[in-house]
Amino acid sequence: MQVQVKLFAFFREGRFIKEDRELANGTTAGEVVDSLDIDREEVGVLMLNSKHCQFETILQDGDVYAIFPVIGGG
């Protein structure tokens, strides 16, 4: 299945901004984080199709998946 993965802030360094990735069925959000060599401790927010999700969430074909470090502002 194909999932669009988007990275933000310093997660982009040495990686990418946006990439369509071919993933095995049943891949979880956390497994994508691990495959990118991103420390789960550094992850602040995960969003799947513009809604918050968890490391355990199973991705589906056509999903848009966004990974953010811990950030804030206001």
Partner: peptide, 12 residues
């Protein structure tokens, strides 16, 4: 993150 991107880190 605020020191790197400012509060504008929120746009995305």
């Amino acid at each position: 993150a605020l020191g790197t991107y400012g509060s504008n880190v929120l746009v995305n």
